[in-house]
Amino acid sequence: MSTILLRCAVSVISLCMMCKPLLAEEDSSFWDGFRIGGYTSVDLHIPRTETTRLNWNELAMIVTWDKNTRIKFFGELDLEDVASYNHRQGLDFRDAYINPERLYFDVNLTERANVRLGRFLTPLGRWNQLHASPLVWTASRPLATTELFPTFTSGIQFFGTLPFQERSLDYQIYSATMNAQPESRGETQYKDMRGARVALNNVFNFTDENAGLNTIGLNYATYREEQSFGPKYSLLGVDFLIEFNRWELSGEAYTRKIDHGQGGGSGFYLQSAYLIKNDWYWITRLESLHQPDTSNAERWIIGVTKRLKPNQLLKFEVVGGNGEYEDIPRGFTTSFAMMY
């Protein structure tokens, strides 16, 4: 782990230094291009069958470098599972680990095309690309967005936006070039990831004064399980987001096939967020996950979330249904998340 981190750090510093000559004519310093931010979240779980516990989930640091050239750098280094507390074991820091979540350079090729090199969030659906606690309405994450595909890819991605009339089409085409992934706990390891996503924005061209974002995305990817002779999967997915008046509706659905057309699992979620009053939102979600080798899960979630400030969310939710997964056990959860 420490070797990986060291390599990442050396790579980033080397590449940033390579950018420096391009800026020789700029008045301001090379270091002025850096920005630092991050996010953090704390959960209190009161499960139906297990002990109540308090988790400090992550302390994330985001570093960007942008000096108004065609090259940009983005890095996110997370301290995951920072600490937990329950009345039996007391305060526990043993599960903490460092995860270089994202490290990449973006290079602008043309006004419609960019290339991303490094480790990035796999562009499958919306949730995976926006999974940070302060950006999502619930403390729990839909199982279909964690169990069916690799959440990170190390390689190359071409992306951009093509406008036409009132609408626009975002595209992302990517391929893994490195299969050695930094450790990410509890996830199936995959390799040879390749895929594409297109998303049509402003689909309905709402003109009402309460209109918001509305987008539909299509996803396709192929990949293998990392173990020897692991199966090759092909995955097809669709996702959407509609905001109108006080409603935000979103969802994703995936179906996966193994080499010779056998079913390799499927899953979906449908979520609604309704603005009640004073930045309090009523949240509901239905989700399902089917995998060949594990038990199926059908979960429901209801809750309320308060946007305390534009960068802070306070969440209360009840998780029910069948299928017990580690991330959020069935029961009550409250969470506070903020960006800084």
């Binding site: 926006l130 309460n210 960006m339």
Partner: peptide, 23 residues
């Protein structure tokens, strides 16, 4: 915002948080 972006500045808070997450 209404005519060009088809949404109000208030409804864009979530979007800009998402973009901040991507730098």
């Amino acid at each position: 915002s209404q005519q060009v972006l088809h949404s109000s500045p208030r409804s864009q808070v979530g979007y800009w948080n998402e973009q901040y997450f991507h730098g």
